[in-house]
Each structure stands twice: as structure tokens, then as C-alpha cells.
């Protein structure tokens, strides 16, 4: 039905193409089976098309590190990486991630210790309640992968896409500056 290998129609959904049509048009679906990687692991699930990636990560995969604040793109709490780039997971449908690589905050410290960016946040009081932190961390990781020595302007531009109600931001800025120095990439 669908030529894209990462995007298949679930068996239970009838995928009929009316015979009257000459050229086969793709039929819109209410649910799709998608395959993609989340934190390096391949995931294949059938998902309702209107489910956001954020809800899919939290509810279907139990990855509740991705937080939901506003659910309309403003706060940044849900920010994750799509093929390495920071995106709002509340503004992306899970089916749109078919074939892609997703990274969430859970990927940062799979073992015991903290990721250097996380450690810097702890060291420099970059968090208090921690609600906003997963989003800040993922944006900071993406920035620091691209720029080993980011300018303050780049740091502020990146962090400007996130809201924090607790810290007053200065600790977060300091944490990212520090992480640029301590993270051995």
C-alpha cells in the first residue's frame, strides 16, 4: 500500500483502493505502523496518526523524561532530537518520525554516572524543580555537538527557546559554558 518501508498500514485497518480510480492514490489512514530508532534502539509500533511524538514516547514507550508543559511549542520542555536536530516533540506526530532517529534525555546517561552536560547543570545550579531540564539538556547537547566552543550569543540563542520558572536562567547559562569546557567529545 505504502511504498515507504518505515511506514506501513496496520493489518487491521482496511487498505482498499477503490477500483474506479485509474492512478492509485495513497489512502489516508487513522493508524500506521512505524519503524524508527529511539535512543539507538529500533522500535516498531502501530500508532494512531494524531498521537504526538511526545505522547508516544511517554505513553507507549514509557520514556517519561520528555516533559510536556504547554503542548503548543512555546515552553521547550518536550524538546528532543530528530536526526540530531532539536525539535518540539509536542508539534510532531509520531508517524512523522518514521525512519528517523530520535534521542531523548534518557539517552544521555544510560549507566550510573551523569552525562557531562547533566553534571554541569547539577554543579552550576542549572535546575531546581527539574521540569524544564530535559528540554534544556537536549538543546544544549545539540549545540555542543556542533560547536565545541560556542559563543555566548550562540548559547543564549539556543537557551532562548526554553522557559524555566525556577532558576532565573543564569545557572543554566553557566552550566552550558562549563559543559563546553568539561565535555570530552
Amino acid at each position: 500500500m505504502n511504498g515507504d518501508p518505515a511506514h506501513t498500514t496496520p493489518a487491521q485497518a482496511p487498505a482498499r483502493v477503490p477500483a474506479r480510480r485509474k492512478r492509485r492514490l495513497r489512502e489516508p489512514q487513522s493508524a500506521l505502523t512505524i519503524r524508527f530508532t529511539v535512543n539507538g534502539e529500533t522500535v516498531e509500533r502501530t500508532v494512531e496518526v494524531r498521537k504526538t511524538l511526545a505522547d508516544f514516547l511517554r505513553e507507549d514507550l514509557g520514556l517519561t523524561g520528555t516533559h510536556l508543559g504547554c503542548e503548543h511549542g512555546v515552553c521547550g520542555a518536550c524538546t528532543g532530537l530528530l536526526n540530531g536536530e532539536p525539535v518540539r516533540s509536542c508539534l510532531l506526530f509520531a508517524v512523522q518520525a518514521a525512519g528517523a532517529g530520535i534521542e531523548t534525555v534518557e539517552s544521555l546517561a544510560p549507566g550510573e554516572g551523569l552525562h557531562p552536560v547533566q553534571a554541569a547543570f547539577r554543579e552550576h545550579h542549572g535546575l531546581q524543580c527539574g521540569f524544564c531540564t530535559p528540554g534544556f539538556l537536549m538543546s544544549a547537547v545539540a549545540l555542543l555537538r556542533d560547536h565545541t566552543v560556542p559563543t555566548d550569543e550562540q548559547i543564549l540563542e539556543t537557551l532562548g527557546g526554553h522557559l524555566c520558572r525556577c532558576t532565573g536562567y543564569q545557572g543554566i547559562v553557566e552550566a552550558v559554558r562549563a559543559a563546553a569546557r568539561t565535555w570530552q567529545r
Partner: peptide, 25 residues
């Protein structure tokens, strides 16, 4: 689930998009 139910289709070309838009108006 935040949005109201909808159906979803991801065309692969401009022509296919135009055909789908024409079909669903």
C-alpha cells in the same frame, strides 16, 4: 490525544499531493 481525529497521508511527489488535495478538497 490532543487533536480531534483525522486521517493522515504522506504523499511523495507534488503531483500526488495535488491529486490528494483535489480528492479531499
Amino acid at each position: 490525544m490532543k487533536p480531534a481525529p483525522f486521517r493522515y497521508v504522506a504523499p511523495r511527489s507534488v503531483d500526488e499531493t495535488l491529486a490528494l488535495l483535489a480528492e479531499h478538497g
